[in-house]
Design a protein around this nucleic acid. Structure first.
Lengths: 242, 242
DNA sequence: GCCGATTTGTCCGTATGTATC
DNA sequence: CGATACATACGGACAAATCGG
């Protein structure tokens, strides 16, 4: 929990934007004004503003000011966005989560798994297959590979609750960067066995490689979502091109 | 085209990472070293590094150093990532693009369109429906709504070539922020008419709201991709939680 | 069109804190 | 413990874009 000044300003402005203290399309107070309000330096204010910009909340315009471009997005389905665990996502989406562990085994990365997951060949791994329920309905099928060296002592009981909580609270490991790929794939036999597909013949699939705070990849996951309850959100800011 | 110092350092380091001058998992030279190499201030080096971090190229570790975590991702399908036009994406994916305009009309945003697109009610719009080919195969069906006020003089001929090029080169308007939502939807009659669906009954759908550099939304687009030629990539960096 | 005031963008140097080794 | 490395913060300077008179 950062108690940095810029983080305080960031949260404060974010809250004011969400609660429409600053209306949509209006300009925020100028940097000079914010400096006086918060009694800090210009760099500190600018850092808070730049984080809001990368969240898609504001947009800076040289010579003009900083405009509020925040629009709340309606969530009609289970929404995926930043890095968070199934548990965290469920809570944010106001749904009741439940997890059933279908498989829990140990294995070594062979040629095929190594190429797919990014782990080096021969690395000892945990493989976990889990069915995720939301409000009692099975909606997601997860295939996880964890690097045993960085996730020692993993058990089916932990996998049933929350691996991320185990990682962060018990092992003191923290999750930092995640590279994700979203595709649409055909349903498999396993999908149809566990999920009610309603004659859909596709799945929304997110594969991700996750790195800890030492920059080491400790996880590879394939998350297969029932298409009618899936939504992925993203903000992209274009850089001035070359 | 920015000729800022931090941008030069950013590009230089990025190139060195991609060409494995810095190997995967190795530490980059320390900030102090980089300051001397580039003959600039610490803030400038740090800005370049922080952009690389948000690209998923490196990860900073307090007290340890900055690790290269760049892994090239294989592209087995048409890959979507940052903000770019169909033309730009096609070139990056080494494919030959072609566009056929199916519809080109003017209309005013009614209740329904306003709610869906985010444009205010009664706003004059262009509506364009386009079929996108890659290497001669129709793969994407685009439905665009442009705010007429900000995109004056749009014609079917421009829509057939590149609307973005028209916006940037002719109108001097620049694209800045884009909010996107990825979902999977059932095929429609129109999809099946124009795309060879191979018994797939789903589409990968990206809807986006795009803002110009004044922070005004000028575009709403729904882009429907054939699922077997679609891939969306994303890097997410976790913030230290509250 | 010019000029000055305002606002954001870039860059510098320095100081202090915190984590790692 | 000291040395090294990144994190935060300050204050100042000048540039670039915008806007109003």
């Amino acid at each position: 929990m950062p108690k940095a000044i810029y983080d305080h300003i960031y949260r404060d402005l974010k809250e004011k934007i969400e609660s429409e203290v600053f209306p949509y399309q209006a300009l925020l107070p100028s940097e000079h004004t914010l400096i006086q309000e918060y009694g800090c330096s210009r760099n500190t204010v600018r850092r808070a503003l730049s984080e809001l910009a990368s969240d898609g909340y504001v947009q800076s315009m040289q010579g003009k000011g900083v405009r509020n471009i925040y629009l709340p997005v309606e969530q009609t389905a289970f929404t995926v966005g930043g890095i968070e665990s199934f548990l965290e996502s469920a809570i944010r989406n106001h749904q009741t989560p439940y997890t059933k562990v279908l498989q829990f085994t140990e294995l070594e990365a062979g040629e095929k798994i190594s190429g797919k997951t990014g782990f080096s060949k021969g690395a000892p791994l945990y493989y976990v297959q889990r069915l995720r329920y939301l409000n009692g309905v099975p909606l997601i099928l997860d295939h996880n590979y964890f690097l045993k060296e960085l996730v020692p002592g993993l058990t089916p009981e932990i996998a049933e609750h929350s691996v991320y909580e185990y990682l962060e609270k018990t092992l003191g490991l923290s999750i930092t960067t995640s590279k994700r790929t979203m595709t649409v794939e055909r349903v498999t036999q396993i999908d149809e066995t566990y999920l009610d597909m309603n004659d859909y013949n596709c799945m929304a699939v997110i594969t991700s490689q996750t790195f800890n705070d030492d920059g080491i990849q400790f996880e590879y996951t394939q998350s297969r979502h029932r298409p009618d309850h899936f939504q992925f959100q993203d903000i992209s800011v274009r850089k001035r091109s070359s």
